[in-house]
C-alpha cells in the first residue's frame, strides 16, 4: 500500500496555471460548456491523443473538477468527462472509443453512465434506470444491460424518454430514463459491464473527491473571511476561541480530504492496484469534510447564512448529494474492511 511517488501529490506549475485559469472561468456566472470544452479543452484533458484528447492525465482533470466543485458548476464534467469517458476507456473497446471519445473530448457531445440495469435483447434496451446524473441532457447514455452472456455495457443515443427528477441540489441534475426497445450498441466484451463499471466508479469517486475538496475550500475561505470582519460584542467573532477552534478543526479535516483526494487522483493513472482502497477512502474522508464545511459555512454566518440569498445552502445541498452519490460512506468503509480482509475475522481468532 501507498507506493506512489510523493511528487505526484504536489501540484505542478502547469497544473497551478490551469487552476488559476479555471478559477477565473468558473467565477463568471456565465461560464459555459462551449468555452470550457472548446477553448480550455477540459473534457479532453485525460483522453489519450489517439482519441482526440489532450493526453494529460487524471490529475489535470482533477484540478478542473476541484475548481468546478468550488463554484458548484452544473456543467456535466463529472458525468461526461469522468464517468462516461472512464467507462469507455476501461472497456478497451477501440471501436467504441474511436466513435465516441473524440466528440466527448471536444465537448461537442456529452455522455453519462447509469448504474442501474435494463434488459437487453437483440441490441434493444427495455426498462428504466433512475437518478442518472445529467441524464436529461446527455446526448449519449451508457447503461448496463442484462444479456444471456451476463451484464453488458451498452451505448444508447435515442429511443428512450427522460424525466428530470426534482433534486436537492439543482446544480447536479438527475433524471429517470425509460427505454422502450431503444437501439443500443454494446461497449466492451459481452458480460464485461461489471469490471467496466467498477473502474468507472472508482475514477468517478476520485473525481467526486476532487470536487468535494474544491467545495470545502470555498466554504472555509468564505467563512474565515466572514468571521474576521463580523463584529459582535465589540470584536471580530473570529477572535473567540469557540469560533477559532471549530475552524481549526475544519482545517484539519480539509487537509485530510485534500490528502485523500490527491492520493486517489494520483492512483487512477499511477497505481490502479491501490485505486479501490484510495477511492473508497477518499469518499469517506471528503464526504465528512464537505458535510462539516458546509454546516460550518451556514452556522458561522449566523442568520444570514440561513437565508435563501446566501450561497451557503447551495453547498449544503451539494455536500449531502455528493455524500450519497456512488455509495454512502459507511458502504465504502465496509468495502475497505473487505479489501483489508476484515470481514472474516471470526475465522482466525487471536
Amino acid at each position: 500500500m501507498l507506493t506512489i511517488d510523493p511528487a505526484l501529490l504536489a501540484e505542478t506549475d502547469e497544473q497551478a496555471q490551469l487552476r488559476s485559469v479555471l478559477r477565473e472561468f468558473f467565477a463568471d456566472p456565465g461560464a459555459d460548456w462551449h468555452t470550457l470544452a472548446g477553448q480550455i479543452g477540459v473534457p479532453g484533458l485525460a483522453v489519450p491523443e489517439r482519441y482526440g484528447g489532450a493526453g494529460y492525465g487524471f490529475r489535470e482533470l482533477a484540478v478542473a473538477l476541484g475548481e468546478a466543485g468550488r463554484a458548484l458548476s452544473p456543467l456535466p464534467l463529472l458525468s461526461s468527462a469522468v464517468l462516461a469517458t472512464s467507462a469507455l476507456l476501461a472497456s478497451n473497446d477501440d471501436e467504441a472509443c474511436a466513435r465516441h471519445l473524440p466528440a466527448l473530448a471536444a465537448g461537442t457531445s456529452t455522455a453519462t453512465l447509469g448504474f442501474g440495469t435494463v434488459d437487453a435483447e437483440a441490441g434493444r434496451l427495455r426498462g428504466a434506470v433512475d437518478m442518472v446524473l445529467d441524464g436529461a441532457d446527455a446526448s449519449l447514455v451508457l447503461i448496463p444491460g442484462r444479456t444471456p452472456a451476463g451484464l453488458t455495457l451498452f451505448a444508447c443515443a435515442d429511443g428512450f424518454t427522460r424525466r428530470p427528477r426534482r433534486v436537492l441540489d439543482p446544480s447536479r441534475p438527475q433524471a429517470l430514463l425509460e427505454f422502450h426497445d431503444a437501439p443500443a450498441t454494446p461497449v466492451g466484451p459481452p458480460g464485461g459491464a461489471e469490471a467496466i463499471l467498477a473502474a468507472a466508479r472508482d475514477a468517478g469517486l476520485a473525481g467526486l473527491a476532487a470536487e468535494q475538496v474544491g467545495g470545502c475550500e470555498h466554504a472555509l475561505e468564505a467563512t474565515v473571511a466572514h468571521v474576521r470582519q463580523r463584529n459582535q460584542f465589540g470584536r471580530p467573532i473570529g477572535s473567540f476561541q469557540a469560533v477559532k477552534h471549530r475552524l481549526a478543526d475544519l482545517l484539519v479535516e480539509i487537509e485530510a480530504a485534500k490528502s485523500a483526494a490527491g492520493y486517489a487522483a494520483a492512483c487512477v493513472d499511477a497505481a490502479p492496484d491501490e485505486l479501490p482502497v484510495a477511492a473508497s477512502a477518499a469518499k469517506v474522508v471528503c464526504s465528512a469534510a464537505s458535510v462539516r464545511a458546509a454546516a460550518e459555512y451556514v452556522q458561522l454566518h449566523g442568520g444570514i447564512g440561513f437565508t435563501w440569498e446566501h450561497p451557503a445552502h447551495r453547498y449544503v445541498r451539494r455536500a449531502r448529494t455528493s455524500e450519497v452519490f456512488l455509495g454512502l460512506p459507511h458502504e465504502h468503509r465496509a468495502r475497505i474492511a473487505a479489501l483489508l480482509g476484515l470481514d472474516d475475522g471470526g475465522a482466525n481468532v487471536a
Partner: peptide, 25 residues
C-alpha cells in the same frame, strides 16, 4: 468493529499521505 477498523485504516492512510505531501513539497 469492522466499520471502526476501516475508518482507522483510512486515518492511517491519510496521515501517511499528509507525510508524503510534506516530503513532496
Amino acid at each position: 468493529q469492522r466499520d471502526l477498523a476501516a475508518d482507522l485504516y483510512i486515518r492511517t492512510l491519510v496521515q501517511r499521505v499528509i507525510g508524503l505531501r510534506i516530503t513532496a513539497a
